[in-house]
Simulated assay, not measured.
Amino acid sequence: MDWNRVEGNWKEMKGKVKEKWGKLTDDDLTVINGNRDQLEGALQRRYGYAKDQARQDVDTWFSTLH
């Protein structure tokens, strides 16, 4: 699976994102709208992650979707 499928199925994926990162608000999810950079930025803001940590966390979560 590539990231385009996450973007294309964002309405379905929002629930999975919310399960993984419960601190993200519905507004965050609306702004993210399937955009990986936006997701990583939201994780940095809500969880205080460093950029590399946010990227790795998203990579790990994404690998579980296959």
Rank of each mutant, 00 (worst) to 15 (best):
39 L>H: 01
37 D>P: 03
30 T>N: 12
48 G>R: 14
38 Q>E: 15
66 H>E: 12
41 G>M: 09
39 L>W: 00
30 T>F: 13
49 Y>M: 11
33 N>Y: 05
64 T>F: 03
22 G>L: 09
39 L>S: 05
66 H>M: 08
54 A>C: 07
1 M>S: 15
60 T>V: 12
22 G>Q: 14
63 S>H: 04
36 R>I: 09
2 D>Q: 11
20 K>G: 03
34 G>T: 11
51 K>V: 06
52 D>Q: 15
10 W>V: 06
56 Q>V: 11
25 T>V: 12
29 L>G: 05
14 K>P: 00
51 K>A: 09
40 E>D: 07
62 F>V: 01
42 A>E: 00
41 G>R: 11
56 Q>I: 07
51 K>E: 08
66 H>T: 10
63 S>A: 14
33 N>W: 02
57 D>S: 10
58 V>D: 01
59 D>K: 13
3 W>D: 06
28 D>V: 03
37 D>L: 14
19 E>K: 11
13 M>K: 15
62 F>T: 05
21 W>P: 02
53 Q>P: 02
51 K>C: 02
34 G>A: 09
5 R>S: 10
30 T>L: 10
12 E>Q: 12
27 D>S: 10
61 W>F: 11
10 W>M: 08
7 E>P: 04
7 E>Y: 11
52 D>P: 01
34 G>P: 04
29 L>K: 04
63 S>Y: 01
17 V>N: 00
16 K>G: 07
55 R>I: 07
12 E>H: 15
1 M>I: 12
36 R>E: 10
7 E>D: 01
61 W>A: 00
26 D>F: 11
7 E>V: 11
5 R>K: 14
52 D>A: 15
51 K>M: 06
30 T>R: 13
36 R>N: 08
64 T>I: 04
48 G>I: 06
10 W>K: 12
18 K>H: 15
41 G>S: 09
47 Y>E: 09
60 T>F: 07
58 V>Q: 02
53 Q>S: 15
4 N>H: 09
15 G>P: 03
4 N>E: 13
44 Q>K: 15
28 D>M: 04
54 A>I: 05
6 V>H: 04
28 D>P: 02
28 D>G: 06
45 R>T: 10
6 V>G: 01
32 I>D: 01
26 D>C: 13
10 W>H: 07
20 K>P: 03
47 Y>M: 14
19 E>Y: 15
37 D>F: 13
57 D>I: 05
65 L>D: 03
46 R>G: 09
66 H>P: 05
29 L>A: 07
40 E>T: 08
19 E>L: 12
55 R>T: 08
25 T>K: 13
10 W>E: 02
14 K>G: 03
4 N>L: 09
50 A>V: 02
44 Q>C: 01
66 H>A: 07
